[in-house]
Amino acid sequence: MESRNRFFFAGAALVGGVLALSGPARAWEPTHPIEIVVPAGTGGGADQMARVMQGIISKHGLSKQSIVVINKSGGAGGEGFLDVKNSKGDDHKLIITLSNLFTTPLATGIPFSWKDLTPVAMMALDEFILWVNADKPYKTAKDYIDAIKAAPDNTFKMGGTGSKQEDQIITIAIEKVIGKKLTYIPYKGGGEVAVQLVGGHVDSTVNNPIEAVAHWRAGKLRPLCVFDSKRLDYHDKITGNMSWNDIPTCKESGLDIEYLMLRGYFMPPGVSKDAVAYYVDLFKKVRETPEWKKLMNDGAYNQSFMTGEAYVKWLESAEKLHEDLMRSAGFLAKK
């Protein structure tokens, strides 16, 4: 029943699309399903955001065309970026990014850069928090740092997602500040990393809030500090007595490190200006929905929204930052 309606609808849309093509030029509208490429596996932060947006757009009927989410995670996301880079002028393709937009070309030498793509909008920035197992005695970041300093190199194990990506960059930054080596163990996804911490197989993680919040609420994990310049602006109580806002910044705790991860959209090179404007407008509508606000709330995102010039400026400085961090960590691919 449902599928028949759907088919009818799709068929009507197809006819509509043909008509629109032959008609006079108006504001750009998609003529067939819009593809969102996720350069990461299923279940990660970017994937979740893309799928929630897909749900929001279809639930509120924000677009006449449906959204298709496709994961292209090969080569640390390089596969997805190359695909978009090579789809020149495709107005129906978007890619949601994470930090691998910057780290993958640097670490693997896969030939692409954000400059090959058309920036659309920054949807939010994802925070990073230093987590430990709640059974461990470390109540503050200072306790934990002191413990690391007191022990020999490589005693403490840091779990993270992937190799030579954001989690390991932060780990290297921590090592630089406290002058001790940590053992970094890469896993496939953020959810898995959080579970390994709950099971006590690693000593700490730098999970994004949304990956670890369920375990925090269950009293299994403890947040020590957030890698941002200011505390998170979410005051609802998550556990009995703590809200996101009660987590101190790492800077307050003597760990002067800031790191935020981009959750933004790009399109292939050479797309029309009208198409970009359409998607910017679509994303603005998405940001107004209650579901989006709930996602932001659950994941304690930094809700910066940028488009156009401002977005490009941000990207330029972020690229520079990553290049510096990756170079000093020795993560650049051998040419």
Binding site: A76, A107, T108, G109, G162, S163, P186, K188, F331
Partner: peptide, 8 residues
């Protein structure tokens, strides 16, 4: 991609 070293 080698998951452990991030190398191809």
């Amino acid at each position: 991609l080698d998951q452990m070293t991030g190398q191809l």
